[in-house]
């Protein structure tokens, strides 16, 4: 029983990692998306490289580069800091693409109508396009949030004291209960991600009804 409480006590770390990395991505994703859509090649090309690299390199490799690699250059992070940065990098790229997808899904006429009504480019974006794009992007963002929650389990490899780290250290002892211990960790992740997925599905239907077709 004690073992299971010990694993459960890793839950706040798992949640904190998910929330912090998602917050970084949600904020950093906006300028990244704007640069990716820019008409200036000087902005668009580097943004594209950053997004593609962040998504093509597996998250666990990012964690290793930041934790083990950057330490050589004098940039030493705690495991938790390295995890937040690594997952934050990946989140920024995925959320930038989610925002961009949302914006691309908005009917061109919305843009033209705002223009015809005399809205400035900025107001048109802020009051007409962005709110609708956000609604389209929301389900993608939620799906990513679930993937991110599961990806926090990778951080055990650099020593972040979260759910899987604890389960792994208990299971390594080689006892007969290691299967049950790891299954318990798996069930914890499922308990977190299945309800989120259910809410997402409902949200998706509700949000789609509020976007001009």
């Amino acid at each position: 029983m004690e073992t299971y409480w010990y694993i459960l006590a890793g839950l706040p770390t798992t949640l904190a990692l998910s929330v912090l990395a998602f917050a970084i991505g949600a904020v950093a994703g906006i300028p990244l998306m704007l640069a990716r859509r820019s008409s200036l090649l000087l902005l668009r090309a580097p943004a594209r490289v950053v997004i593609d690299l962040s998504r093509a390199i597996p998250p666990i490799v990012w964690l290793f580069i930041i934790f083990f690699g950057l330490a050589e250059t004098g940039l030493k992070f705690t495991p938790f800091q390295a995890a937040v940065i690594g997952l934050g990098v990946v989140s920024s790229a995925y959320l930038a693409e989610a925002y961009r997808g949302g914006l691309m899904a908005i009917d061109k006429l919305q843009w033209e109508a705002g223009h015809a009504l005399g809205l400035s480019q900025r107001d048109n974006f802020q009051y007409v396009l962005a709110p609708q794009a956000f609604r389209v992007a929301l389900p993608t963002m939620a799906t990513f949030a679930i993937a991110l929650l599961k990806d926090t389990s990778l951080t055990y490899t650099i020593g972040v004291n979260e759910i899987l780290f604890r389960a792994n250290s208990e299971a390594q002892v080689g006892s007969a209960s290691s299967l049950a211990i790891l299954a318990f960790a798996g069930a914890l992740y499922a308990l977190l991600s299945i309800p989120t997925a259910m809410v997402t599905r409902r949200l998706d239907a509700a949000m789609r009804s509020k976007v001009a077709q």
Binding site: K150, D151, S153, L154, Y156, L164, A167, N168, A171, Q172, S175, A176, S177, S178, L179, A180, I181, L182, A183, A185, G186, A187, Y189, A190, S193, I194, A197
Partner: peptide, 19 residues
């Protein structure tokens, strides 16, 4: 879909020996 891939790998490698 709900359980991280890493947990499945750990289950298969470190968990299954207990049965």
């Amino acid at each position: 879909r709900a359980v991280p891939a890493l947990v499945f790998l750990q289950l298969a490698y470190y968990g299954l020996p207990s049965i």
